[in-house]
């Protein structure tokens, strides 16, 4: 029982960072109807920028801010310079360009920063607090939870209460109609990319300290898991991404704990396939998002 509780807490805290990352994937999906396969690499790049600032100034919060800003800029840049010009004749174009971006970003990071793992400092203690004899969550985990929740609430407000949020949703779902109604669809796409990349940057800053540290390939596996989380929750639903992230975190923690660390990639695939084949819109889809 103790073991189960321990794995539950462990799963929730890793799940929270998957949730943050899945959120970024959902944002791009909502803005541009595509899965950004370069999200992981972009997040690593902004995290490098963030930690360069942290080690330069000694302030984690300044680094975090710069990383998020760098995310905004990188997202806008990728949309303006690359994605906008991908021909629509081939629907795979965007995925392939994104994968090219992965190779490019990882190689450039390797050239600039080297291939060493860099330690990532955190603003809060990572030592877990003990609740009733069971080590539960650490202050750092609480900070991750808090940050993710704040982002979810802010995004929900943005999409439901502000006109720019409304315009973004409109231009994603019905670009032609929106254009007729005077929405600058192109600009909304840029905003969507920038926003998603900023959330990805935040997720990167949250994820990296929990693993081996900063490395050009640090997010490879995280991307696959976060994609699963986003699909589980439904690519259309920010709340679904959070629940999906936590759920996937829990499942992987139980699998790692009870079946062994080797089996997780298999568990990811099984989960992904099960959700896609049984409930393709994700567990929390409000609309029939995907009809074949």
């Amino acid at each position: 029982m103790d073991r189960f509780l321990f794995l539950t807490f462990d799963g929730l805290s890793t799940g929270a960072v998957y949730a943050a990352f899945a959120l970024a994937l959902v944002l791009i999906w909502r803005a541009a109807r595509l899965v950004n396969f370069a999200q992981g690499a972009m997040a690593v790049a902004t995290t490098y920028v963030g930690y360069t600032v942290v080690s330069g100034t000694g302030s984690y919060w300044l680094g975090l801010g710069v990383a998020v800003l760098a995310g905004l800029a990188l997202g806008a840049l990728v949309e303006r310079v690359l994605m906008r010009f991908v021909g629509h004749a081939n629907p795979l174009g965007e995925v392939i360009v994104a994968l090219g971006l992965v190779l490019l970003i990882q190689a450039v990071l390797g050239m600039v920063f080297g291939n060493e793992y860099r330690p990532a400092t955190v603003p809060f203690d990572t030592d877990a607090l003990s609740v009733g004899g069971i080590t539960a969550v650490s202050p750092y985990d609480l900070w991750v939870f808090g940050a993710v929740m704040v982002v979810v609430v802010l995004l929900a407000l943005l999409f439901t209460r502000t006109s720019i949020g409304l315009r973004m949703r409109a231009s994603a779902f019905a670009p032609e109609v929106s254009r007729l109604l005077g929405v600058n669809v192109g600009r909304m796409l840029t905003v969507g990319w920038a926003l998603a990349a900023a959330v990805g940057a935040l997720a990167g800053m949250l994820v990296i300290p929990t693993g081996l540290g900063l490395h050009p390939h640090a997010m490879d596996m995280v991307f696959v898991v976060a994609f699963t989380a986003a699909v589980v929750g439904g690519l259309d639903s920010p709340a679904g991404a959070v629940v999906g992230g936590l759920l996937v975190g829990l499942i992987l923690s139980y699998v790692t704990g009870y079946l062994g660390p080797d089996t997780t990639p298999l568990a990811v695939l099984v989960l992904l396939l099960a959700v896609l084949l049984v409930r393709p819109g994700g567990l929390f889809s409000s609309v029939k998002a995907r009809h074949v």
Binding site: V35, L92, T228, D262, P265, L269, L273, L277
Partner: peptide
């Protein structure tokens, strides 16, 4: 055959990460 575009890419990406896992299991 039941999956499209990015979904298929995502699933097969998960398949690609499977090789080391299978060989150690």
């Amino acid at each position: 055959a039941r999956l499209r575009g990015p979904y298929l890419a995502g699933v097969t990406l998960a398949v690609a990460t499977l090789v080391p896992a299978i060989t150690t299991i």
